[in-house]
Simulated assay, not measured.
Amino acid sequence: MLKPVLILLLGAPLTAVAAQPAALSLEDTFDAYVQVILHGNEASREALRKRNLLRGINDGTDVIVAPLDVLQLPKAAFNGTAMEPVSRALEMRQKTLSCTITHITRETVDAMLQANVAYRCAFPDLSGFFATYRNAQKRRAVVGDDPEDAKALFVSFANALRDAPDRSHQGRAVFLQMPDSGTWESTNLPLLGLALLQRVMPFDAWNTRIEAESVPTVTGIPTCDLMMAAQLGFHARHPPQSPFLSNGMLQRNLLKRVEGMSDEEAARDCQITHDRNRELWNREKTD
């Protein structure tokens, strides 16, 4: 009797080692993405690597997983520079970042199980620092670059980043379950990293907002108002009088197009249009 029991006990670890690792659940996959994106968590990064191996992605796994930690690069780049206080503030504030699932709906699309995951994140709200940043940019335009001014601005921004209140960020991610491995894959959840970066390092958005203060307000969305000003300027330079300039046709079309969009969606749509127009106009100059 003892011999069969010993065989079973000795065989159990071998069986466990040889077994295929279980696929992450939908919730665990979401959490692994979030932990890497927000915190650079190594255990979650390894879980995503193993998930990719389950899917048969044997090459370039680190290329897929490593870039998810969007705060790693700015923190490293700021160290040893005048922006080092910002790096330390990012390190501190990163610990408070969080995202949670609020709702999940599941459906079958083209014979694949699809999950639509709504989530809410707590990100720092730095909007209160905008006036300070704008004043600094106006001073820079008058007196030029001053290292001491820049240093003081970075320290002030670092303090604001540490002390800023949290603000809710709502998002939606689409997951598909792979039929063979059972793993879940999302193509748009990694964009959460971009949303995070824009919240903690909002300088591009602030520069756009400052630039838009010099053009007429149409939508109140800086990117869209800049795009409209560029369109109107282009048509005004092409005699005879462009029909697009009469009766506010372009403005009405823009307002109709962005109706129902979030500010982020509208800004993204307007930026795509602005870039496309610029490319077309530049091509027209060279033809």
Results as ranks from 00 to 15, higher is better:
D62Y: 03
V63F: 14
V65I: 13
L68D: 08
V70H: 09
Q72W: 02
P74C: 10
K75E: 10
G80M: 13
G80R: 05
E84V: 12
P85Y: 01
P85G: 00
V86W: 07
S87V: 12
A89C: 05
E91I: 06
M92W: 12
M92G: 12
R93P: 10
K95S: 12
T96N: 03
I101S: 00
H103S: 07
I104W: 11
T105L: 03
R106Q: 14
R106F: 04
R106P: 07
R106S: 07
T108H: 03
V109C: 01
L113P: 01
A115E: 04
A118Y: 04
Y119P: 01
Y119I: 11
R120G: 10
R120N: 14
A122Q: 07
A122E: 14
F123T: 07
P124A: 04
L126M: 04
F129V: 02
Y133N: 00
R134T: 08
N135Q: 15
A136V: 00
K138Q: 13
K138S: 13
K138Y: 09
R139N: 00
V143G: 07
G144Y: 06
D145Y: 13
P147L: 09
P147Q: 02
D149Q: 12
A150S: 14
A150T: 13
L153S: 04
S156V: 04
F157C: 03
A158V: 04
L161Q: 00
D163E: 15
A164Q: 07
D166F: 14
H169T: 13
G171I: 11
R172L: 14
R172V: 15
R172C: 02
A173V: 02
P179Q: 05
P179L: 09
S181R: 05
W184D: 15
E185C: 01
N188W: 10
L189P: 04
L191V: 13
L191T: 08
L192S: 09
L196Y: 04
L197C: 10
Q198F: 05
